[in-house]
Amino acid sequence: MTALVRLYPRAWRDRYEDEFLGVLAEAPPSFLDRIDILLGAMDARLHPEVPGDGRPNEHDVRRAPSGRLGSIAAIAGGLLWAVAGVILAVAPLDPSSGNKDSTLGVVLVLLGSLCTAAAVLATADVMPRNARGVRAMGLGIALGSVAILGGWPLLIIGIFAIWILTGLFAGLLALQGARLIGLALLVSTALVVGMNTEDPRALLTIPFGLAWILLGAGLAAGLRFTPTVSTGDA
């Protein structure tokens, strides 16, 4: 049951969790109650109305609305990258060229990459000390994504720009307190460099996608950053 309650935002839990668990202890929740709790958690995240002095606390400032946007974009991007890998791996051979028909997979990679760029840009707002640097990384990933459309050699330049900038972003995450997520993204970025659309190595996009989903879940849960590195921003 506490797992369901953990879906509520931290500020809500700080205020209501203890008595809420007390109510649940007195009246063990039915299946419908569990759905009601789930909807309540979604509502609390979308419309935080925790009583207080009316001023947003540090937690709220960090999370909304950029934290939510970053979370959604990271999860969407991660899913698109992971699905792209599967589609590329199972794509049929084009008899005329002897190569795989990777059009759909590449389109998904492009969309996934744009989503992860949006996630990086949104995350900049919750990393105020390094906001300018993180925004530059996000813009770089977005430009790299668009470059994929340009064919050779822009495609290769774009895709490597995405991976390098994602690696830098992952390192920054790890240094700013999100060590597990940062390292997961860093390792999966190193792995995805080895992907190949023509063989099963296309599946290397799956851990990369999962790492972005992990970041999205972290942002949704109110991931906090502890500034330890400055990229020159005030």
């Binding site: 929740p29 109650d33 009601d36 309540g40 509502d43 925790v50």
Partner: peptide, 12 residues
């Protein structure tokens, strides 16, 4: 009234 609804309303 479900517990999620109860506390959503109480908070408001």
């Amino acid at each position: 009234m479900g517990p999620g609804t109860l506390y959503g309303a109480l908070a408001r």
